[in-house]
Design a protein around this nucleic acid. Structure first.
Lengths: 207, 207
DNA sequence: GGACGAAACGGACTGCGGTCCGCTTTCTAT
DNA sequence: ATAGAAAGCGGACCGCAGTCCGTTTCGTCC
């Protein structure tokens, strides 16, 4: 897989250590993280998140079990890592993809596109989010990203009030537990839930 | 404890079986459920929900472990049962306590009282709700009760739209995961969160 | 290249949630 | 009162998440 004819090898980019940054990962550690993430993703694809054990992931990655826990803290942590990876693309679409989801469109249209896709994404990754528990859905990355984005859109729309709180309120009905209840237990069609959310957005934004 | 002089024993109330109702519990089963619930409550009080094991509950109740699972399905089920018991009094206040929480006050005032007390209750039982997982917070009883009540208040307030969905949207920010994030991770003061909720209610109701 | 300290590794081990099945208690019909 | 069936009971047992610590690997400094 490596190129055979390498005439003038590119100098490796040197990672200048940022002051205050945590020390970089050792090479074996990094390699194992990759191996584990891949193994976990594959196993999850095959048997669903619930059917995957930590032992299985360790074995599939050709690594000891202790290593899995060292890298990911817990089962939830591992699931959260996989989840993050799955949602990275969506986040990219929001930040720099084509409108109306990405930048360039009217903020209201962006908000609607955001809500629609967020709802779909959450439902799509439902099992994984469930397995990732607290660590996942509202962990550092994913959650604060959505709040920040919605807060920004609300600002653009000229909404007055406590925006961090309002943004959270607008996002809350899109969280898995609520959607789960409405769609899977109450049996509401997804479209109806979505229309309800748009109505909510209208009332909050004041249109 | 029992009265010693019992002259004319009260006739036991006879439980006439309602048609279509599930068969009544056997006496030993009922006794054990009570024992287990009491034991669990006591242990939780002492060590917090996270520190309580099923074995410990079984032992404290003087009962086999299998019995615990027979009665409550799972650890989450047991926690949910304890939680329900804890919240029963609050539900009673809502349904038939003094205004403004109970009936008799203006619906808007009732809604505000509902939100405030709901927020407090959720925060108060946070650990238990967490341990009760899916089974607990949004289990049959507690959750649908709140939705029904809020939907009723919204009706009284003349709100138009898809009320079941709107009610859910109004309740979502009062769910533990969201409150947890705001209060314990973001560090927002409870009062601020509460004011945010009132603002949300205002926008939904249209005041 | 060698040597040394730090970080990472691996897998045996522990504790807990949940299941299973042979035995006991309760209920009902006679 | 008794017998038979159904429901309940208990605790040994299993699988999996998470820990611990002796061993190995990595990076660095001479």
């Amino acid at each position: 897989m490596a190129r055979v004819t390498r005439v003038a090898p590119m100098p490796e980019p040197i990672a200048l250590p940022l002051v205050g940054a945590p020390p970089p990962e050792r090479r074996d550690a990094a390699r194992n993280r990759e191996l584990l993430l891949d193994a976990a993703t594959a196993l999850i694809e095959r048997s669903g998140p619930r059917g995957v054990t930590m032992d299985a992931v360790a074995q599939a990655a050709g690594v000891g079990k202790g290593t899995v826990f060292r890298r990911f803290e817990s089962r939830e942590g591992l699931m959260a890592a996989v989840l993050n990876h799955s949602e990275a693309e969506w986040q990219l679409q929001v930040m720099s993809g084509p409108p109306p989801l990405g930048p360039g469109a009217d903020p209201w249209d962006r908000l609607l596109a955001f809500g629609r896709t967020r709802l779909e994404t959450t439902l799509l990754h439902a099992e994984l989010i469930r397995e990732a528990g607290r660590t996942g859905a509202r962990a550092a990355g994913a959650y604060s990203f959505t709040v920040t984005h919605v807060r920004y859109l609300l600002t653009e729309l000229g909404v007055r009030g406590d925006l961090p709180i309002l943004a959270t309120a607008l996002l809350a009905p899109l969280e898995l537990p609520i959607l789960d209840q409405q769609v899977n237990l109450d049996g509401f069609p997804v479209d109806r839930v979505h229309e309800g959310w748009v109505d909510l957005a209208r009332r909050i934004v004041g249109r």
